[in-house]
Design a protein around this nucleic acid. Structure first.
Lengths: 229, 229
DNA sequence: AAAACAATTTGAACGTGTTTAAAAAAGATG
DNA sequence: CATCTTTTTTAAACACGTTCAAATTGTTTT
């Protein structure tokens, strides 16, 4: 067992207390003084362990990612069918937030601010983003997906963006148990997969080539040792 | 000329002063006390005219919409080619924010909060949203676009969502003059238009029918007097 | 154990968005 | 004009995220 510093232990305790409050009273309704009081600390001491309020749910996001990752691996182990894998990944990501929609909403607020380190597009989130994209890479690699060769390397990031879009939809989905998101996700994924497959028949001149050119202009692929892929 | 109450006149003045500050110092850097001082008012008096800080840029958004609408009409008058119209509309919407990207970013912050009345998806924004969708309706109606009949009524709202997506991309686009957004918009629009056209060849059983079913489940069309359309 | 250093905690204060009770100004009515 | 009503303004205060200088506690070195 690794020795933990007092600070680490305290931070863990503060995190637990904070999450309890957030889930009960909501993020906005929970005040930093509330948290400090509950932890029998002064506000200042709380700030010694967390740089700010959002950092606490940031940690929640971080942890929930691990659950998500595990679920994805389980899905990949269970099927090679690409469509099933993709829907599986999407559902896995949403299921992690089922009981805490408000927290995802709060995270989303900073999500669209390019300057916020909490934005999934920002540098501060690079690690989680890359890890998620890596999951999509794995999803593709060992699956039965066939598609135009040139498009393939762009797919992981494109699917990641698709995931972001689905999460956004879910946030706004007020239907019972977010069943509408479920329906959309199911159908849309199916058609997207079809579309990707469809790229195998030659339509390069007027469709794929310019599109790939644009993709590369917007977000050039990093040079990568092909061996590991 | 309509008689204007003193309050209306004052609100107008406050708006002007506020926008000057926002554009010079940025939204976050401008304090309510700054604005009140500049207007030679107490903070409280300022709040008599605007319910809160964001309401001021909300008004900016409202006004910018009118410019946008006019530009769209000009585009429609100049061409019937659907693709040109769609790219025209998208570019028109972005051009309105060219000089004030930060303000759009600020607006976007509440954009992803379902509970914020400033969200383009919310009830509070229904008017502008409906008006924008109406523009897309006009764009389609008098254009040369051919597509599957059943899909047609869903297109205006779908294109509106496409616009939202493009705006989001633009917010994050740090390239020179947001040229990447421009490239994406151009290429993506072209392929989307193709895809829509493509729906005319029969693929109903496995593609279009279930997709339309899902669309209708998620966002049923309102019953409408067909005559006016 | 004393001294030096580091980690943690405190409580007061700051900045800023917003509210509020009361005053002042403007308008309407007799 | 005097009175009543409504609109507008004021100054002070609140709430809450956050910062900070100083105090306390804990650990290491001599």
């Amino acid at each position: 067992m690794a020795k933990k510093s007092k600070s680490e232990v305290t931070a863990e305790r503060l995190y637990t207390i904070s999450m309890e409050h957030f889930l009960n009273k909501g993020f906005d309704q929970t005040t930093m003084r509330d948290l400090a009081t509950a932890a029998e600390l002064s506000p200042g001491a709380f700030y010694y362990h967390f740089p700010n309020k959002e950092a606490v749910i940031q940690q929640f996001y971080q942890r929930s990612f691990e659950t998500f990752e595990a679920e994805c691996r389980a899905v990949f182990a269970s099927t090679e069918k690409f469509e099933d894998r993709l829907t599986g990944v999407l559902k896995a990501r949403l299921s992690t937030f089922e009981d805490s929609r408000e927290l995802l909403i709060v995270l989303s607020r900073s999500a669209v601010d390019p300057r916020s380190p909490l934005s999934p597009f920002s540098d501060g989130q690079k690690e989680i983003r890359e890890a998620t994209i890596q999951i999509f890479r794995e999803m593709i690699q060992t699956s039965d997906l066939k598609c135009e060769k040139r498009l393939r390397p762009y797919l992981p990031e494109l699917f990641w963006m698709y995931l972001m879009g689905i999460m956004l939809f879910w946030i706004f989905d007020e239907s019972q148990n977010q069943e509408k998101t479920d329906a959309l996700l199911q159908q849309l994924t199916r058609q997207i997969v079809r579309l990707v497959r469809f790229t195998r028949i030659p339509l390069s001149g007027t469709v794929l080539t310019p599109l790939i050119k644009t993709l590369d202009f917007i977000r050039p692929l990093e040079p990568k040792k092909e061996s590991t892929i």
